[in-house]
Amino acid sequence: MLEAKLDAASQLKKIVEAIRDMLGECNIECNETGLALQSLDKSHIVLVSLLLGSDGFSEYRCDRGVTLGLNINSLATVLRCANNDDILTLRSEDRANELILTFEDSKADRISEFNLRLMDIDQEYLAIPETEYAATVVMSAAVLQRTLRDLSALSEAVTIEIDKEGIRFSAEGDLGKGSTHFKPCVDMENAENSINITLSEPVSLSFNLQYFSNITKASSLSSTVTLQMTAGMPAQIEYKLPSGHVRYYFAPKIED
């Protein structure tokens, strides 16, 4: 039996909006620690890992594991019926075939209830290896999104090089090439504009910019993003949530 309450529906609405374009049918695993979703995007190039900790809910109860098999776009559609500041409750009985969502306005004189049909989705779960990343960069989520968007005008791929001088994003295409380099810096006024680099050795990887733009849709969830890279492995891109995270494991393009 799952019963989880959020004081503002916007907390869940914006997370689902950020990942809905990448995903289709997926299982949301609910247990006493919270809600977890792990799913490959349609291209199998990105693995999305979402965790919403139970302490992020104003009320949370899940005494036995519940799996919510649903299409993320259907969930997004139902959530569109909630106002951002509605109180949102998710409820599902054990082995139920529906998820009940209720939206109450704060004055509690309007309450909507939606029943989302659940499905049995046999999903392959991938083992995410513990990885020692050669480089970790913490930077503004908006700056990363803007940098990649600018370079997507030049090419469908971006090369990211991280060394002790900083982090360079570069792209080359038919009309020419371009690059943006950021030095490590600390911005005392607003810390989110700082560029913090932890490096054990330089690393350079290339990625598809179309998929990267899907990933950076999560920039609305967190002011900073953590980018972790190591040679020959998928990058880990993490947007922290008040009590959880949205993590993307992004497969690089490998020189053959």
Binding site: L40, H44, I45, V46, L47, E124, Y125, L126, A127, I128, P129, A157, S206, N208, M233, P234, Y249, A251, P252, K253, I254, E255, D256
Partner: peptide
């Protein structure tokens, strides 16, 4: 010429 790899080629199945 850089080849796009899939995630499965890096992460095994559980």
């Amino acid at each position: 010429f850089a080849m796009q790899k899939s995630i499965e080629s890096f992460f095994g199945q559980k």
